[in-house]
Simulated assay, not measured.
Amino acid sequence: MTKKGTLLGRGLYFDDLAVGSWFHTAGRTITAADLSAFVNLTWLTEELFTNDADRDDMAIRERVVPAALVYSFAEGLLTPFMQGTGLAFLHADLDVKGPTLVGDTIHIECEVSELRAASKGHRGLVRCTSRVLTQRGDTVLIYTPLRLMRRRPQ
């Protein structure tokens, strides 16, 4: 016989949130291997990301990573927030504020800005303002996803 207890590793439900709720994620350092794998996977072969020999001719001399990688890692860092409770990613506005470099450690500060019950009663719409920051405290990306999330079972 298996004992039933609290299931760990589940995300927040729609009902657990309030406008103004705020949380932050753990950090994640972006490595040269991450950049290489992402560029090869996505075919983002812009020399800004792939050419180390001619850095003196580029506007940014450090190794820059694509904003798409930063966004992807941000979503990964937010996964625990919606593990098992997130149903759909519906929309987002995204604004790149500055470069992210190989060796930067990012984390996300997230604030709930909108909550609406969905037409089906067991779901709700959640919009957050997600700020991606580096270890220096620089905001490098802001996006505002609208997600469909489960409501807490009755």
Rank of each mutant, 00 (worst) to 15 (best):
A32T: 12
K120F: 00
L48S: 03
L78Y: 08
K120H: 02
G9Y: 09
R116A: 14
P99F: 08
I30G: 02
E47A: 02
A92W: 06
R127D: 00
E46G: 02
K4D: 03
G103A: 07
D15R: 14
E109K: 12
V96P: 11
L78P: 14
A67E: 00
T50W: 10
M58C: 02
K120S: 07
D52V: 02
P66G: 08
E111C: 10
D16L: 06
I106V: 11
M58V: 03
N51F: 07
W22K: 15
T6Y: 12
S21Q: 06
G124P: 08
Q83D: 04
K3A: 10
L94P: 00
W22I: 01
L12T: 06
G76C: 03
L48A: 11
G11S: 09
G5L: 13
P80E: 03
S36W: 01
V39Y: 04
A18M: 11
R10Q: 12
L35R: 05
N51C: 06
A74F: 04
E109S: 12
L90F: 11
G27L: 12
D93N: 05
R10Y: 04
R127F: 01
A92Q: 08
D95G: 08
I106A: 08
T50V: 12
R55Q: 03
N40R: 12
N40M: 13
H107K: 10
I106G: 07
G27D: 05
A117E: 12
T129R: 12
A59C: 14
D34S: 07
E114L: 13
G5D: 10
V70D: 03
D93V: 05
G84S: 12
L87E: 14
D104Q: 15
M82N: 01
A74M: 03
E109Q: 13
E111Q: 15
A117D: 14
R55C: 04
L35V: 07
D52R: 11
F14N: 07
R28S: 03
G5I: 07
R63C: 05
V112H: 01
H122P: 07
V70L: 08
A37E: 10
T129W: 06
G84C: 10
T45H: 11
E47D: 02
E62M: 02
T42P: 13
M1D: 08
V112T: 14
F73P: 00
A59E: 15
E111I: 13
I60H: 12
V126G: 05
E109R: 11
T6R: 13
S21A: 15
L48M: 15
H107Y: 09
V132W: 01
